[in-house]
Design a protein around this nucleic acid. Structure first.
Length: 506
RNA sequence: CGGGGCGUAGCGCAGUCUGGUAGCGCACUUGGUUCGGGACCAAGGAGUCGCAGGUUCAAAUCCUGUCGCCCCGACCA
């Protein structure tokens, strides 16, 4: 059903608006299984495009795909102390392997000797394989990626942003030297940033996490952070330098060139279906979804307008011919994706369905257009009213450029929004005022959109970070790469190496 | 696990206080008029009122128990 309308606005009720966009664009829905979502075809097509592009980028950087078990013996998790601590509280655990019917109910029997955890992440199970695969420095580096699902038993879930089960990719690599592993960590962070900006049209800040926000078991965690339209930060991808923590836990050892036994240096990095939540909250507007052209399931939808039955055939013939011409064109290295919607429903209703789905270009084709050999074009990055008549030949010849200009416009708009809501802050009072929650009329009202990104100096004290989190729900999202000028921490008066990015986060 | 709320048609809800034939909007089906900004008219289909007991001539409604879900908090890609 595509009857859902977006009636909330970002300004009035951001959370309701987000849910409504997902329903109206038919991206996903809640399932009967607690915390788990059903990704519907339009949403899954976005994910497939994410996969296709990223997979190509991973392969271009020397990685290969493999697949490891869904089940992880509990003893594997136990091998890395902080890793256990980080994930133990949210593990789904398999304890039995058989069901028996008793009094009409199926009850688990056949208890496992060792419980299995449904993977929350795969460092340990992949580490076990790496330990077998690596003998010599000549076996390194090992550059593996896995496309998979993982389960984290979260207390509160939200479509795409946090679900109990989600889809992702996880890269896992092993290297002979620390520097090589660090280089890999940074390279993949760069891949994520490029993907976010060039394909999702979502500007990001690259940086390092503070100790408190670090991946359990990592030496260093790096991330890309994006600003959503409620000015909160979304961690859109992470890349971890794991040092020798996991190679020691899993026994990934090799003989180096000097015939000495050494532990490998490992990395891991991942992005998930959360990226789709990021796309929604970066680009969608009060009318519905707005797909960045490079990832849109469909670039162009052709809408035949048939007023009289006798026009039907020539309108359809023209439309199909146009589809063929457009499909012969390229955009971002792939053939232009063109759909025809000739369903027998009202023209207004039909157009709105595609607006809500966020197709970059809608093209209306009626007898008037055919007579002039032109098409009536609407861009999703403009208002629904703005439609222009374009000669058919010109439309076809410039389709790639048109899609690119939509892509660029979306990035520019998102970037301008982020810049407009990012501020250097130099005093504690200004900081607290910037993030103070505006008063609500009723306690049940949604919290108005406020704050943004604050760039402020910080002495690095974890206790101070906790205090600010308790006071304002604001955390250090990252310490941006590229450094910056030293200064004074506005909270303590102590020296600070550089400004860090503070924000409320998803 | 603490605090609040809700289970009635596919979805959103009213009806519950004060017991008396199961309703509304959207969606769906059919026919007609429409169609380049979310159409209109007519007809129709669809519900063991979360579940189990109890009170009663009679329960969506009152009582008891129970299950589930949502929101706020703690936890989090």
């Amino acid at each position: 059903m595509l009857n859902a309308k977006v009636t909330s606005t970002r300004a009035a009720n951001y959370q309701d608006w987000y849910q409504e966009v997902i329903a109206a664009a038919d991206l996903a829905e809640n399932s009967d299984v607690r915390g788990c979502m059903v990704i519907k075809p339009w949403g899954y097509a976005l994910w497939e495009n994410v996969q296709r592009v990223l997979d190509g980028m991973f392969k271009d950087t020397g990685h290969v795909n493999a697949y490891f078990p869904l089940f992880i013996p509990v003893s594997y998790l136990e091998k890395e102390a902080s890793h256990v601590e980080g994930f133990a509280k949210e593990c789904a655990v398999v304890t039995h392997h058989r069901l028996e019917s008793r009094d009409g109910k199926l009850v688990p029997v056949g208890e496992l000797e060792e419980p299995l955890v449904v993977r929350p992440t795969s460092e340990t199970i992949i580490g076990a394989s790496f330990a077998k695969w690596v003998q010599s420095y000549r076996d390194l580096p090992l550059l593996i990626n896995q496309w998979a699902n993982v389960v984290r038993w979260e207390m509160r879930t939200r479509l795409f942003l946090r679900t109990a089960e989600f889809l992702w990719q996880e890269g896992h690599t092993a290297h002979a030297t620390s520097q090589e592993a660090i280089d890999e960590t940074m390279k993949m962070l760069g891949v994520y940033a490029e993907f976010a900006e060039q394909f999702m049209a979502m500007p990001v800040v690259q940086g390092e996490k503070t100790a408190g926000e670090r991946f359990p078991g990592a030496v260093q965690t790096f991330c890309i952070e994006a600003m959503m339209q409620d000015r909160k930060a979304l961690q859109a991808g992470t890349s971890h330098f794991l040092g020798q923590n996991f190679s020691k836990a899993s026994g990934i050892q090799f003989t180096d060139a000097n015939n000495a036994l050494a532990h490998a240096w490992t990395t891991s990095w991942g992005v998930s279906t959360r990226l789709i939540g990021g796309m929604i909250m970066t680009h969608a507007d009060d009318d519905g979804m707005v797909c960045p052209p490079k990832l849109a399931p469909s670039h162009v939808v052709l809408l035949p307008v048939v007023r009289k039955p006798e026009d039907r055939q020539r309108v359809l013939d023209f439309t199909r011919a146009l589809q063929k011409e457009l499909r012969a064109q390229q955009f971002a290295g792939v053939p232009v994706r063109v759909d025809i919607d000739d369903r027998d429903i009202g023209g207004g209703e039909k157009a709105w369905q595609w607006i809500k789905k966020g197709v970059p270009l809608r093209v209306e084709i009626g007898p008037r257009d055919i007579d002039q050999d032109s098409v009536f074009v609407a861009r999703r990055d403009k208002t629904p009213k703005e439609k222009t008549s374009v000669p058919r030949g010109e439309f076809v010849a410039t389709i790639g450029a048109t899609l690119q200009s939509i892509q660029d416009a979306l990035f520019a708009r998102a970037n301008a929004y982020r810049l407009a809501n990012t501020r250097d802050i130099d005093t504690k009072d200004d900081f607290y005022a910037y993030f103070a929650e505006p008063a609500k009329k009723k306690s049940s009202d949604p919290t108005p959109i406020h704050g943004g990104f604050a760039m402020a100096h910080f002495n690095g004290d974890p206790a101070l970070e906790t205090k600010i989190k308790d006071d304002l729900k604001v955390t250090v999202r990252c310490i941006p790469i590229g450094g910056g000028e030293p200064g004074v921490c506005p909270f303590t008066g102590q020296p600070s190496k550089q400004r860090v990015l503070w924000a409320k986060a998803y």
